[in-house]
Nucleic acid binder design. Sequence first.
DNA 1: GATTAAACTTGCAAAAAGCAAGCGACTTAA
DNA 2: TTAAGTCGCTTGCTTTTTGCAAGTTTAATC
Lengths: 128, 128
Amino acid sequence: MNKTNPKNCLPENYRSACPIANVLDIVGDKWTLLVVRDLMMGKHRYGEFQTSPEAIPTNILAERLKRLEAAGLVKKDFYQDNPPRAEYFLTSKGADLGPILQAMGQWGAQYIPGIVIPEQFGPAEIRD
Amino acid sequence: MNKTNPKNCLPENYRSACPIANVLDIVGDKWTLLVVRDLMMGKHRYGEFQTSPEAIPTNILAERLKRLEAAGLVKKDFYQDNPPRAEYFLTSKGADLGPILQAMGQWGAQYIPGIVIPEQFGPAEIRD
DNA sequence: GATTAAACTTGCAAAAAGCAAGCGACTTAA
DNA sequence: TTAAGTCGCTTGCTTTTTGCAAGTTTAATC
C-alpha cells in the first residue's frame, strides 16, 4: 500500500470523496434512471419495464435490476415460487432519487424541443 | 419508412419523448456531469479539469468537452491563437444543470458514507 | 540547444452495450 | 393431450465505448 496515494483514505473503489462522483457510480449511465423512473410511475414487473418506449434490452434490464437491488435502491418481492415471479419496489433510499429525476425532467422540459411531459409520478409505493 | 413506428414522430434519434431519457442522452454517463461540476466550481482550462481527484482520462475529457460544446452547454473561448489555447465556460443552458447536481449532491451526502461535501459551487460564471 | 509544459490526438486492449436466440416452468387453445 | 404461447430471464456474439499509455505540436524556459 502506498501511503502517498490519497485514494487509500477512501472506501475501496470510490473514485473520489465527492458525492456527485459517487452517485454517478451508481446511476451514471443511460438506463438505470429510466428503470427508477418507471418504478416511480408505478411499474413493478419485468414485463412492464419492457413496455417503456425506450425499449431497454432485456439483458441490460436484468442486470440493472440486480445492481439496483444490490445497492439497496430496490427491493425484489417474490409473489410466487414456481416459476419464480417477483415484483420490484423502490426502497426509501431509491425513492429519494426523486429530486434528481425531477430536476432532470424540468431541465429537459425547458431545453429539449419536442418532449412530452409525462403524467406526474404518483406517490411511489415504498418497500424497505 | 414505417408509418407504424411511433418513433418516426420524434426528432431524429430521440429514444423517446420523455425528458428524462433525453437528458440522459446528453449527460447520462460517468464523466460528463463531473466536467460540469468542475465548471461550476470555477475551473475553466483543460489542465484544471485534469487535476480533479477522479482523474478523467485525457481523451475522454477532450471528447466530453466537444460534446458539451456541441450540445450548447459549454462555450469555448480562445484567449490566444498560437498555440491555440482556450477556456471553457458554462452557458446558461449548461448552468441550469445546477439543480441536477445539487440533487445528486444531497442524495450522496445522505446515503453514501465517507463522502465529503465540497465547498459550495460559486455563482458559476456564464458565457452565452 | 535541451527540457518542460499545455492541450490535445492516436493506437490498442479491455469493458460495456446491443441484438438475437434459447430456456425452463407454467397456461391456454385446439 | 399435445401444441403453441407467455413470462422472466440467460447465453453467445458483435459492435461500441472506455481506459491507458505514448506521441504530437507550438512555444516558453533553463
